[in-house]
């Protein structure tokens, strides 16, 4: 219950207009800090829903795959330049962002991750790594402005953010592949 409460607090903090305004003023903070933090808020709140509706999750997400698919769809949707623009210009889309990322992506990620096999987890991480490299490439070398609301320099910064995140995930995958924690623990 405690962590769900903190999750709710985090969501309220992120929705608060000065915070939201500041985070959305930089493209990279918008996509790489606000959005993940919304997902994290949802992951914290997931505990509440898991306890409140155990049969729902058991029935619809018994092996984790439906949940993770929902997560992927929501997250990929929010990576499109067009949707970010829309969130800034249309209020209803902004509201959808604040609902979809925590409640559809965050909750389902928390419920699904432990149910996935290690193969499933690796597929997800590798998939996002490839996607991030692609998006990094797109944002860094795109000759035109992709978002109406952000300048090209913001776009390039975001691209580097994507590439670095991808490098981080490759390091993680390599670490997982080469090092067996059970040899040490």
């Amino acid at each position: 219950m405690n962590q769900s409460f903190y999750g709710l607090l985090l969501l309220i903090f992120l929705v608060a207009p000065p915070v939201a305004h500041f985070m959305e003023s930089h493209m990279v903070i918008h996509m790489h800090m606000q959005m993940p933090m919304l997902v994290i808020a949802g992951m914290l709140m997931a505990r509440f829903f898991q306890k409140r509706f155990p049969t729902f999750f058991e029935k619809w997400n018994s092996n984790g795959i439906p949940g993770i698919l929902l997560f992927v769809i929501i997250v990929v949707y929010w990576m499109l330049p067009r949707t970010m623009d829309e969130a800034l210009t249309t209020n209803s889309v902004e509201v959808f962002k604040f609902i979809s990322l925590p409640f559809l992506a965050g909750v389902s990620l928390r419920d699904s991750w432990k149910k996935l096999s290690s193969l499933g987890k690796n597929i997800i991480i590798i998939g996002f790594t490839v996607l991030f490299i692609g998006l990094g490439w797109l944002y860094i070398w795109s000759p035109v402005q992709l978002c109406n609301n952000y300048l090209i320099i913001e776009q390039v910064t975001l691209g580097w953010g994507f590439l670095l995140t991808a490098i981080g995930m490759i390091v993680y995958l390599g670490y997982n592949f080469f090092i067996d924690p059970s040899a040490y623990e």
């Binding site: 910064t157 953010g161 981080g168």
Partner: peptide, 30 residues
């Protein structure tokens, strides 16, 4: 035992470094 998970701390360190450096460095280079 989580205090021994250096892999995790290093990943967190890299994330913090990325958060701090990507915006200003891109600006300085571009």
């Amino acid at each position: 035992y989580w205090t021994e998970r250096w892999g995790l701390w290093i990943v967190l360190m890299i994330i913090v470094v990325a958060m701090a450096y990507v915006i200003p460095l891109t600006d300085m280079i571009v």
